[in-house]
Nucleic acid binder design. Structure first.
Lengths: 206, 206
DNA sequence: TTCCCTACGGCACTCAGTGCCATTAGTATG
DNA sequence: CATACTAATGGCACTGAGTGCCGTAGGGAA
C-alpha cells in the first residue's frame, strides 16, 4: 500500500500524460472553438495520444471540462466538518458554499471560461446533473448530521438542492455580468432565498 | 389558419402514428427492460415505423419518456396567473408546485413508473436538466412579475431552483417510499426549507 | 538478459443522431 | 378519372461517442 505522493517509480510502462494535462489541452480547445466543435480524435491528436487512450483518462468527453471535481468535493467536506457546531446551519451552509466557490484572483479568468463552457453548452448542462448529485450529497450529509436524520431523508436532500440552486443561479448572473463578484452573488442568493421562504405564512400552514 | 381540433383532413400523406402513441409504446419497453436496454430501432419496429421516422416525432430517444411536458408547463403557467395577488408568494409557489404534481389516483401507478425511469436512469437524469430549465423559467417568470424585477435576475432564478429542488427531493422520497403521498412530501419540502432558511441569522447578516 | 507488469493504441463494432432524396399517400383541381 | 400539389415516410450513407479485444511497447525487478 505505497501511497507515495508521486509514486515516481512503479512497475510497468510509464503513463504518457496525465488527466490534468489532458484536461488543460481539451479545455483550451473547447474555449477556442466550442465543445461541440471539438472531437475526441482532435483532443487525442493534440495531446499526442491515441483516441483509445483518451477514454482511459476520462470516461467521457463530457467529463473533461470538470477537472478534478472529486478533490474539490473532498475539500468542501473537510471545510464543513471544520465548522463549529454552534454556528447556525444556515450560516454554516452559506460559508461552505461561498468557500467552495472562492478562487484566487489569478485563477478567476480561466475559471470563468471553464464555467462558460460548462454552463452554456447544452450537452454539458445535461451531463453536469450527474456531478451535481455528488455535490448535493456532500451538503445533504452535513445537514443530516446536524439535524440527526438520515442523509437520504427529505430535508437534507431538499437543502442540498437549495444550495446547488443558489450556486448555479449565482454563476449564471456572474457569467452574464462579469463586473459582479461571484461570492457576493452567492451571498445574495442565500439572503434572497430567506426573503421569499420566510415571508409570513397564511393561517393553516404547518 | 384552420386550428381545427383534429384537423381531420389535411393535404399530403397522413401521419402513420402520433407522438403520444409512440411515447406509450416506448415507455412500456423502457419500464419492462430498462432505458439503456432498448434501442431506437426496437421502438421503431414495435411501432411499425422506420427508424428515421422516429426522429421526426422525438428529437432524441431521451425525450420520449417525458410525454407532452410543454403542455404541462402551459397549464402550470395558467394556474400561476390565476393565483390572486393577495396570496403570499411562498403560498402561491407551494400551491402551484403541488398542483403541477397532482394526478388522478388512476394515473399514479403509471406516473410512478414513468418517474422511476426518468429519475433512476443516469442518462435521463442528465438529459432532464434541459427540461428543468423550462420548468424553472415558469417559476422565475412568476416570481419576477410578483417582485417587479427581471425574469433573469438572481432572485427569481434562485427561487426557481429552490422549487425544482423541493419537487425532485420529494419525488426521490416518493419513489423510495411508495406508501407516502407525493403532494404531502412536496408540502413538507416547502416547510422544511423554511425551517432551515428562517433559522436565526448571526449578527452581520445582510 | 529475462520476466513481469502496466499502459498504449489499433481495429472493429454498436448505437444515437443527421442530411439527402426518392417514394408513398393523401387532398385539391380540371 | 387524371393531373397537380403537398406532406409524411423511410432507406442509405455518414459522423462521432463509447467499448471490448488484443497485440505491442516500455518500464522495473530478479
Amino acid at each position: 500500500m505505497t501511497v507515495g505522493r508521486k509514486e515516481a517509480a512503479r512497475v510497468g510502462r510509464a503513463r504518457s500524460t496525465t488527466a490534468a494535462e489532458l484536461g488543460r489541452i481539451g479545455l483550451e480547445l473547447f474555449i477556442e472553438r466550442g465543445f461541440d466543435e471539438v472531437t475526441v480524435d482532435e483532443i487525442a491528436a493534440a495531446a499526442g495520444i491515441g483516441r483509445r487512450t483518451f477514454f482511459r483518462y476520462f470516461p467521457s468527453k463530457n467529463d473533461l471540462p470538470w477537472g478534478d471535481f472529486d478533490a474539490m468535493l473532498g475539500r468542501m467536506r473537510a471545510h464543513l466538518s471544520d465548522i463549529p457546531a454552534d454556528i447556525p446551519l444556515y450560516d454554516a451552509l452559506r460559508a461552505a458554499v461561498i468557500d467552495f466557490n472562492t478562487f484566487p484572483d489569478a485563477e478567476l479568468p480561466l475559471h470563468r471560461q471553464r464555467m462558460e463552457v460548462l454552463l452554456r453548452t447544452p450537452t454539458l448542462v445535461a451531463h453536469s446533473a450527474l456531478r451535481y448529485q455528488s455535490w448535493r450529497q456532500v451538503i445533504a450529509d452535513f445537514v443530516a448530521a446536524r439535524l440527526g436524520v438520515a442523509a437520504d431523508a427529505l430535508q437534507p436532500q431538499t437543502i442540498g438542492w437549495a444550495c446547488l440552486g443558489i450556486s448555479l443561479a449565482a454563476y449564471d448572473q456572474w457569467l452574464a455580468h462579469p463586473e459582479q463578484v461571484l461570492t457576493d452573488l452567492i451571498h445574495q442568493g442565500f439572503v434572497q432565498m430567506r426573503e421569499v421562504f420566510c415571508s409570513r405564512a397564511v393561517p393553516g400552514d404547518v
